[in-house]
Write a protein that binds this DNA or RNA. Structure first.
Length: 554
RNA sequence: GCGCCCAUGGCUCAGCUGGAUAGAGCGUCGGACUACGAAUCCGGAUGUCGCAGGUUCGAAUCCUGCUGGGCGCGCCA
């Protein structure tokens, strides 16, 4: 509806300009917004005021001129009013609203799928945790956000690839191998002390025990470095399998796992650095190589080759992003923990040096999660191996509640996640509120079937009968869905879906409590059945985008 | 010290690239099941949008300064 009005208005403005009624150079960006106040109609536009200030005219007069040139071919408008300082208020005919439900019936599962992408490729990289331990709750939010962003883009016509970057190179991995070895030695009766930086979670001991069981004390005789390398590989492999399993249980499946080590294998990092050096972005200072990120707005230059000859994480990351682009993606989305925000200018410098537009990389920051239980914070320490894993969260509160809770806030704002609250099947827990609405509708539809009703198609329902204010409101909320998806996809803001979902469920519940769907009046019953079926379709489609189930009963 | 983010009812948060009288949920108080599921609904109360200036027809939103909080400032990832 919003789109249609925008089009009407754009044509009107164009028409005015063509006829010379409004002396416009370039046409303005026409914006139509849903009106907040019923007195202001359904939608309002400020075009007239924007134009008026540009051409120094009276805004109300401009509004007047524009409104006279609106060509309402489809007869959707009741009237246009000019109000306040120069707003154009659009009043939509009730029939026009109901007519929009046709799309819901015809498109079904694909209702609300805007074609923003036109098949262009988007790479969404998320989670990307080191395989040094199981995923904990902090990763869970990033997983949920990334997954839903990918869903949103996929439904919006992009060809989406979900990717996990395995940081399996570098000193952290070495620490992993060392940690396993220490536990191994401990199991063989040696007394060991764990230095700073070593991983001490129980899973380390389990891995060491597996190795011991399989190969006994064979590694005691081998050289230290070789053992650590073997143990590192083995542990990373085991942990990565667990990570995949946990993600799967959380409803997140990746298309590709890219290994940092692989980037080094065919000298990609070295070749990239040579390339950048040729372009003049690299300089040498003693043993180290520096990248002139300040040339692209970073606050200081960054090291890419360390004194010891090893490339930095940053160097590999540029190579990784080059690799992403080389695979033909127009847009690359990185989802990072908010504690990495200082890294952003560096990364943009990196892609600028690769000759890529800034817009082609979008970085979404996900704030860390405050884990609570009954309102009290749960202490976590990664080093000591004390943390709540994603698996434990899924096991305890369930996948639906967990995902929904992670998606209820803007991703860049802090989130309190209360385990007890997420488990509660009560009105404090919004996920059940929307699922309940879905189950309720299913229940009505089932009852209708028992009474011999079939769910009517659009043509079979007389929607003129849906005249109640609650019905019109419900129809409006349902038909807003495509706009919500489009907005959420364009802004990369998945939380808009949960807010919308909550509103739709609320509008439905309210309607349900006031009115009966099934009554003696067959025509009305059919019209209402069609309406609630439309609500159900949108509830289901939204929940699907969120990766949350839409139960038929609960 | 420098940089980024945040500050909206008692609490947790929305507010869609400046728009009309700032909205939800929770909590609180009071109501609604002999009709499709009460995990629901209906009603009441609560705000100097951190403070002070500025930009303009118009600011929670943009700019500057201040206060208070989070994070970052490695040849870690």
């Amino acid at each position: 509806m919003k789109k249609r009005l925008t089009a009407l208005l754009e044509n009107a403005v164009k028409d005015c300009a063509a006829k010379g009624l409004l002396p416009l150079g370039e046409l303005p960006f026409v914006e139509v917004d849903a009106a907040k106040n019923l007195l202001h109609g359904d939608y309002a536009s400020n075009v007239a005021m924007v134009l008026a200030s540009r051409i120094r005219e009276n805004p109300r007069k401009v509004a007047e001129i524009i409104s006279r040139h609106v060509c309402d071919h489809d007869n959707i408008l009741e009237k246009i009013e000019i109000a306040g300082p120069g707003f154009l208020n659009f009043f939509i005919r009730e029939e026009a609203w109901a007519a929009m439900l046709e799309d819901v019936d015809k498109l079904r599962d694909s209702y609300g799928a805007p074609n923003l992408g036109d098949g262009r490729g988007v790479l969404v990289e998320f989670v990307s945790a080191n395989p040094t331990g199981p995923l904990h709750i902090g990763h869970a939010r990033g997983a949920a956000v990334g997954d839903v962003i990918a869903n949103l883009l996929a439904v919006s016509g992009f060809s989406v690839c979900r990717e996990y970057y395995i940081n399996d190179a570098g000193s952290q991995m070495n620490n992993l191998g060392k940690s396993v070895k220490l536990r191994y030695l401990e199991l063989l009766g040696e007394k060991v002390e764990f230095p700073e930086g070593c991983y001490q979670g129980d899973y380390i001991g389990q891995i060491a025990a597996e190795i011991l069981k399989r190969d006994g004390d064979a590694y005691l005789a081998m050289d230290e470095e070789g053992v650590i390398r073997l143990f590192t590989d083995y542990a990373a492999d085991v942990i990565m399998k667990e990570i995949k399993k946990d993600l799967h249980a959380f409803g997140v499946v990746f298309d590709i796992y890219v290994s940092e080590r692989e980037l080094y294998k065919d000298n990609r990092v070295a070749r990239l650095l040579a390339e950048l050096e040729e372009k003049g972005f690299i300089y040498r200072q003693g043993e180290t190589l520096w990248f002139k990120t300040t040339a692209f707005g970073d606050e200081k230059d960054r090291v890419v080759i360390r004194k010891n000859g090893e490339p930095t994480y940053f160097a590999a990351d540029i190579a990784y992003h080059q690799n992403k682009y080389s695979r033909g993606f127009d847009t690359v989305i990185d989802i990072w923990g908010a504690d990495h925000h200082g890294y952003i200018p560096r990364m943009y410098a990196g892609i600028a040096a690769l000759g890529r537009e800034k817009d082609s990389l979008r970085i979404v920051l996900v704030q860390l999660v405050n884990l609570m239980r009954d309102g009290k914070p749960v202490a976590m320490s990664t080093r000591a191996g004390q943390f709540v894993t994603i698996k434990e969260v899924v096991d305890e509160v369930g996948r639906d509640a967990a995902r929904y809770n992670f998606l209820m806030r803007r991703s860049d704002s802090h989130l309190d996640f209360d385990l007890e609250l997420a488990k509660k099947q009560s009105n404090e827990n919004p996920v059940y509120y929307v699922q309940y609405a879905h189950a309720r509708i299913c229940s009505i539809l089932k009852r209708a079937g028992e009474q011999g009703y079939k769910i009517p198609a659009y043509e079979e329902a007389d929607l003129h009968l849906l005249k109640l204010p609650e019905e019109v409101e419900l129809i409006k909320t349902v038909t807003r869905f495509p706009e919500v998806v489009e907005g959420a996809a364009a802004a990369i803001e998945p939380h808009r879906l949960t807010f919308y979902l909550n509103e739709l469920a609320a509008t439905f519940h309210s309607y349900y409590n006031k009115n009966r769907v099934l009554s003696e009046d067959e025509g009305l019953s059919k019209a209402r059945l069609f309406l609630v079926e439309s609500v159900r379709t949108v509830l289901r489609n939204t929940l699907k985008l969120l990766g949350v189930s839409a139960p038929e009963e609960m």
